[in-house]
């Protein structure tokens, strides 16, 4: 069952990714990204990361994608006009991506013997995450709030009418 769910979620996630890259219409790309993110949240559930799956859906599929769609509508992006297919760019991109993927898979296969035994996970990891967040990672957690403030001020300044 776990194996079937893994292939199901992985297939959906990659299909969504292909949709992001291949769609001419930016709105369709954004919706494909939502699909991809939801299937990725499913993979998180399989990995016993329940809290992160919820966060992934709320923050990514909720907030971030609404922002993307809002900007796409605001800028009134239409479907790109038909242009001659760029074989050169396609070739370069394919070669780079495939080489990178092959390198990553080889590294992954060297992990095969090291962590093969599936450990029994504990389902109550929200408490553990909260404990870590407020003890060992307290400083990064507080710095994050400054980062969010800076991002907010930056976004407001950048979208003012006249840029100085």
């Amino acid at each position: 069952m776990e194996s079937f769910l893994f292939w199901f979620f992985t297939f959906g996630m990659l299909l969504g990714g292909v949709g992001v890259v291949a769609n001419r219409n930016p709105v369709a790309s954004a919706l494909s990204l939502v699909i991809s993110i939801c299937f990725l949240a499913g993979l998180y559930l399989l990995l016993n990361a329940f809290f992160l799956a919820a966060i992934q859906i709320i923050v990514y599929a909720g907030a971030v994608m609404v922002l993307f769609l809002f900007i796409i509508m605001l800028l009134d992006l239409r479907e790109e006009a038909k242009r001659p297919f760029r074989w050169g760019a396609f070739f370069v991109a394919t070669v780079v991506a495939v080489l990178f993927f092959v390198a990553l898979s080889r590294v992954s296969h060297s992990m095969k013997d090291r962590f093969m035994a599936i450990p029994s996970g504990n389902s109550d990891n929200i408490t553990a995450i909260g404990n870590l967040l407020f003890t060992r990672y307290l400083l990064p957690f507080e710095v994050t709030s400054i980062l969010l403030l800076v991002a907010m001020i930056g976004a407001i300044l950048l979208s003012k009418k006249e840029l100085k």
Binding site: M13, G17, L40, A97, F101, L104
Partner: peptide, 8 residues
């Protein structure tokens, strides 16, 4: 890795 390569 496949997802990352797709993004790349």
């Amino acid at each position: 890795g496949a997802l990352f390569s797709l993004g790349l």
